[in-house]
Design a binder for these strands. Sequence first.
DNA 1: CCGCCTCGAGTTCT
DNA 2: CTCGAGGCGG
Length: 682
Amino acid sequence: MSSRPSSTDVAARVEALRAELAHHAHRYYDLDDPEISDADYDALERELRALEDAHPELMSVDSPTQKVGGSAQAQFSPVVHRLPMMSLDNAFSPEELSAWGDRLVKRLGADADTGIGFVCELKIDGFAISLTYEHGDLVRAATRGDGRVGEDMTANVATIGSVPHRLTTKGTPPALVEVRGEVYMPLAAFERLNERQRAAGDKVFANPRNSAAGSVRQKDPSITATRELSLWTYQLGATEGTPTFRRHLETLEWMRELGLPVNPEIRSLATLAEVEAFCNHWHEHRHDLDFDIDGVVFNVDELRLRDELGSTSKAPRWAIAYKFPPEERTTLLKDIMVSIGRTGKATPFAVLEPVFVGGSTVGMATLHNQDQIKVKDVRPGDTVIVRKAGDVIPEVVGPVLAQRSDGLAEFTFPTTCPVCGGPLVRLEGESDTFCVNAECPGQRWARLTHFTSRGAMDIEGLGERTIQLFLSEGLLHDIADIYSLDWERVRGLEGFGDLSVSNLQAAIEASKQRPLANLLVGFGIRHVGGTVSRVLAAAFGSMDALMTATVEEVAAVEGIGPVIATSVQQFFASDANRDLIERLRVAGLNFQGPEGNDEPQTLAGMSVVVTGTLEGFSRDGAEDAIKARGGKSPGSVSKKTTAVVVGESPGAAKITKAEELGVPVLDEAAFVRLLETGELPI
DNA sequence: CCGCCTCGAGTTCT
DNA sequence: CTCGAGGCGG
């Protein structure tokens, strides 16, 4: 476990594990000539299973975990949607919702005077599905996929009780009826499932949405049948031979007559004020339901108006999903502890009574620094409010003062390092506190893991746990030791067979060729991260030129000021660091300038921000692609931003900011064109 | 000197 | 994601 893996890394690891397992299964079952022990095979399979459990969307029927023996199973076959299954735009605040209302009124002009009717529904937190009925018979159920092409799940979806196999019509059934809906697992069924899983010693699902997704993706439909899934349908797709409708509500009533499950909480509302009341009601009462919702959806009712409004490339203009703000929970703040980073920075964090919030169980949350603790006024023993910032990072909002017991003491920041016992120092005018002991084992460990991490020397197989082990075995003290490890002793350690040793050796060897900028990142010089390292490597071209440069020369570089220049100069002035650098030179590390690249500089002078997950790029991959073409890719949107690229489940703040500032928002296809041509779509 | 804009550093859970 | 702080233009 090195740094936090992105979803694409997980996908890549899953693929790698599947390939490896397939290879070994072939050696074992088909050739009867295994290359690894059964225990090693089991370990690989366990890792894959764990990843698939955590990421049900990556589950595949041809995964080795889904097979009995060596022979391959058929995959879910692709289904091209007759009409694309578009996603919806999101609103995260009442302001954004009313902005949507304003846009509607503007676009529809005079029609607004007569009032726009809205159909309002719950946003079910489940698994989107398309059902196709031909002449009344269910012929296909498909996942949303990328919106254009999904996967055929007919056999599995047909086992769901509320999915009609035949539509109930009086006369001749329509030639074609496609409906869209959400498969979900009722909360009671979710509890029962997890109880069964626990009793059988199987893994427990994290939440109803994951278990619904995992259940639909089963290889064996009879397993899906045991999962008590359910369905709500909410939208017509492609049709042939159906009646003509004027309003969306009419289509829903018609669907209900056909025997399709349409949620009874769907309402037709006339004004935006009523729409807002609907929002507030369900925000407050979301837990009264037998299924999870993550918001509410608003649709323009009149189909004529829908046609007039049309769609963007990404989503229809006539509908919007209002996402509820992150869910908050209260829990006990058991203690406040302090962790030591590679710079020696002492960061306080909250130790919480574990609480399930926003889809996962939270036991810790950062408190940033001493002042933040004071500002929030949280004390060990307090009941505190916890939520997920941006749906990912747990955050302590503040204490519930009504529940504070009398005389609860304020937190006193420790004066000594929890790792080495040395003094903690906070300088005048700074908000951070530091452990100033250069020998502190906590810092040493953090420095080494930083050196091997992806942004720096990227040494696979030398992650946090291995470094911890090597440190405690005395095999490592500083970063140069990595290049002169005593391999005979490594081989004697638990878990280091010939294969893992040779893999690690190869990874270390490969790291010697990393560009100078990566090595500079790895040093962990104060104020010098990835961007500054690349700037310095480009400006000086070699380690020696940078080492011998004066503060003035360094500060003359565009983007580098006196503070960074001094920090760099101080690093290279230290005898210990000079010694370290000489040992790295002897080991044969690359000390020469930036590696060139052949990409045409299509994005020179541009600044492109990426948010969400893209299909064809990892997070770093997208940023590398931008930088390789001469562009910049900062982490936030400003008026200097050329464009914002939006992938799956993007950050709301960035899109909102982009819209405010009128910065173009691109989908992945437009991004690929931008990389090639440097041109924005009009 | 102030107000952007960026960057760095640390962080959570699966 | 969030906070703090460096760099730089006005």
